[in-house]
Structures are given as structure tokens and as C-alpha cells.
Write a protein that binds this DNA or RNA. Structure first.
Lengths: 238, 238
DNA sequence: GCAAGTGTATTGCGCTGCGATACACTTGCA
DNA sequence: TGCAAGTGTATCGCAGCGCAATACACTTGC
């Protein structure tokens, strides 16, 4: 697992030495591990030139993870229904401590780059989904997450000050949903709604993301919030 | 890895005993393995009731697999461009011996069920993508794949006879693309185009899938084939 | 022509994964 | 009510396997 995790830091094929360093072990040990992972299909050679890449065998486990996840199962039909009424990008992201991890994504026509990919994540502290989730946690839990986060800004407007973030969380508490503008991507507005488990803990969030070029914030809220809220309630078990 | 692979046969949370059996080992050994996989985040307990599920940590590796894959990198922008001109569902599936494994999927408004999921696969022998790939292989290789396949039909129209399949492959050889109707899903028509690596081996296929309720086969071919072919050529390296 | 990279193969020690065993708890049938 | 058959958990000791060491073939570039 350490060897496979070494790819997290990569931005292209990895050599044995790099994998060894990333996995915290000897080059020869890494080679042996790569060897067996390769026979199992979890790693493959880069076709052109040097280095190794993760193998498609991993996608089998991806499918298991998604199709067996009770939340994803429940959410998918609801999200598709939601998308029919709202013609914007719709995501389901799972709460994973400091990050929100995209599990389901339904695109629109004009989508940015390779945002198609499952497994992408955004920080909890500066995303609409994160704020929605945080709004259902206690002040101590919120502080814990905010303090432990690496609060590097994505855009000039990304909120990094702990007080500002807590204000957004408080607003989300009052409203029951969160609105984020220009946080991850400039020009983007996102509304997010918390999803709760049977105990009332937040476990995920639904996002509806649109463009500030097409909407004013008020219009967007009016249009999108009622539908999103209904969908989130349908998925929640609380 | 055996423990994680045990989930492939599951259709819900798995108990320790089931995992042990699936992984081919003792129940206590499985327990110990589950224990460490759980601390690593690769397995989690099912929230309600008994059993275990794959953990979202796996999705980190999914992201690596997709974002580092040279083919996916090259293909994504091309596919998105393609989708702007063709308003049907577009997929990129990777050739993996007996199956074609979906890596990228761009939906339309009205999509069926939970076809959203990455990692889904369809048999090579009866899918348009499979035929497209087979059309670039030798007769022996085609026979090998067809013979080794479990040729269970999906619809009443699924081709299962080896001769019929080879005829489709031959047609794809002549045309440069493959058309499949009612093979995986009744009412579906799909056009597929082979993607080649530098050596000329087929490694993937682009699909464009539409509904027979909206198109005749001839109309569909006229509309879709030129665009799909151009996209496949743009991605291929041969 | 040497140095610093690749990836590969083989050998052997010692850590770690597996099996055995025991226990607490729930469920359902006798 | 009590037993049987399931759950999941914890601990311990041996043996098999993962890791380090070593050697080698090949490419790249100074």
C-alpha cells in the first residue's frame, strides 16, 4: 500500500527510486514489491519511456467502493432527478476530515478541464460542501478542522482567516445551506446542502455549482436552494 | 489485496467469514488483515448493522490511476470537444483482455440508472468498443478472446455465436469503426472507434451511444461516425 | 570512457502475516 | 430459558514472505 500511495505525489510515471523514496524503503525492496504488484495488475510500465504507473486493476476496487457505498446508492437516482430540474453541475462529496472527496459528479455541457475524475477532493475549510458539513458539527469540531487545515488560498477570494470561515459556517447553520463564491475557482458559485446519517452526523454534501457570469448570487439562491434542500433531505437518514 | 478483492463478488456489506472465504484464508487471518486495512482507511464498517465495506481511501488510488494514465490525459479534452458536437453519451473504455473497462464517461441529460460509475466494464465480445478493438487484432487473437469469453447474452439480440461475432469484427475491419445495436442494452445503438498506441496495437475505444428510439441506424452512422473517427485519430498515436 | 541514471534477478535473514485459540455479544429456534 | 450459530474482537507463536544487500545489463550525457 505504501508503494501504491507513492503515486499520490507524482505527476507522471514514477521510477523505482522515486517509488522507493515515496514508500520509505530500499530501492530493491521497492523493485520486488513493484514486481508482484505488476503481476497482479496494480502497477504497469509506462508504455513510452521509463517509469511505472498505477494499473487499471485498481479501478475494480473503485467500482466496489462506489457501488457498495450505501450513500452513493441512495444518492444517485436522487441526484439524477435533481439534475433534470437544475441544469448546473451537481456533485456528491464525502466528508473525510480535512477534505471533501468527490464520489459522484454529473456534468453540464461546458465543463472545465478534467474535473471529470472520481477521487478528486477539495479542502473542507473553503468549499461550499465543507461549510455545509461543518455547519452540522460543534464549535470545537469546526475549530479542530479549521486549525489543522493547510489553508493555502486557491483564488484571491479564498477565505483563509479562521474567523471568516467560522462566520460562513454560522451563516450556514442559520440558513440550512452554504453558499460559496470564488473559493476554489474564480467565477464559480456553489450551493451546498449537508447530508446526515441516522445519528444526525454530517457525512456528505450535495453541491450545485454554477457560473457567476450567468447568475447573480440572489437569483442563484432563489433558483437552486429549494431543489437542493429537498434532494439532501431525501438522501439523509436523520 | 485478496481481502479487498473479495468485495468483487459482493452486493452489500461483507462479514468477516465471507471476506475470509473470498480471500481464501482463515477467518482470524482475515480479521487481522481487515484490522490493519481499516486503520489505513481501505476498509470501513457498515454504519447500519453488520459487515464491512471498502473505504474511501481507495478512491485516492483511483484518482492516481486516472490522472496519471497517459491515454486518459490525452483523451479527456478531445472527448469533451466531441461531446459538444454530438449530444449523445460518450465513453472511453480501456481494452483489458476479455473486457472493456470504462475510464471516462460523459453523460447526457437523460441517463440510465447508475451507469455513472467508473470501473464498470462490459465484455469485449459483444460490445461496440470490443469489436472496434478486435478489428485491429489478428484472427488468432480474436479467436482467443472470443473462445475464452463467458458468452452469456445480455439481451435477446446479444450475439453469442463465434461466427456472428467474427463477422462483426470483419465488418469493423472494413469500415474502420464498429456499430452495435441492442447488445448490452435493448434499444441502444453504439458506434465505437479503436484507439491505437505507437506500435499500432489497440488499447482502447471511444464509444458514442444513443437511443434507437431517436435514430435509425443509417442516420446515426451518418451523423456520428465522421466525428468519432476524427476524435479517435486525435487520441491515437499510431 | 566514466558516472549516474534506468530496470532486473537472486539470495538470505528477520519481521510480519497467518492460523489457532479464546471471548463477548446478538439472533433465532428449540 | 438455554443452546447453537452467527456476528466482531484480542492475543500469541511459528513460518513464510517481504525487505535489504548485492550483482548485472543497459541507456544517457557530460
Amino acid at each position: 500500500m505504501n508503494v501504491l500511495s507513492a503515486f499520490h505525489l507524482a505527476d507522471g510515471p514514477m521510477t523505482l527510486s522515486q517509488l522507493a523514496k515515496g514508500a520509505g524503503m530500499d530501492r530493491s525492496a521497492a523493485q520486488r514489491m513493484v514486481h508482484t504488484l505488476r503481476t497482479l495488475g496494480y502497477i504497469r510500465r509506462d508504455e513510452s519511456g521509463n517509469g511505472f504507473l498505477p494499473g487499471i486493476r485498481i479501478l475494480d476496487h473503485t467500482l466496489d467502493t462506489l457501488r457498495l457505498d450505501p450513500l452513493v446508492r441512495r444518492a444517485t437516482p436522487v441526484l439524477q432527478e435533481l439534475r433534470k430540474s437544475v441544469r448546473e453541475r451537481i456533485d456528491l462529496s464525502l466528508f473525510d476530515d480535512l477534505r471533501m472527496l468527490y464520489a459522484v459528479r454529473l456534468q453540464t455541457k461546458r465543463q472545465k478541464f478534467y474535473t471529470t475524475l472520481v477521487g478528486h477532493s477539495v479542502p473542507t475549510f473553503c468549499s461550499s460542501g465543507g461549510w455545509a458539513v461543518l455547519s452540522k458539527l460543534s464549535d470545537e469540531q469546526v475549530s479542530g478542522i479549521v486549525n489543522r487545515s493547510d489553508r493555502r488560498p486557491f483564488t484571491p477570494d479564498t477565505l483563509t482567516d479562521a474567523q471568516d470561515i467560522k462566520a460562513q459556517v454560522q451563516k450556514a447553520r442559520d440558513d440550512g445551506y452554504a453558499i460559496a463564491t470564488n473559493q476554489i475557482l474564480s467565477g464559480e458559485i456553489a450551493a451546498a446542502f449537508p447530508v446526515l446519517n441516522t445519528k444526525g452526523d454530517p457525512i456528505a454534501a450535495i453541491h450545485i455549482a454554477g457560473s457567476l457570469a450567468e447568475w447573480t448570487q440572489d437569483e442563484y439562491i432563489q433558483r437552486v436552494v429549494p431543489l437542493g434542500q429537498e434532494a439532501a433531505r431525501a438522501i439523509s437518514q436523520y
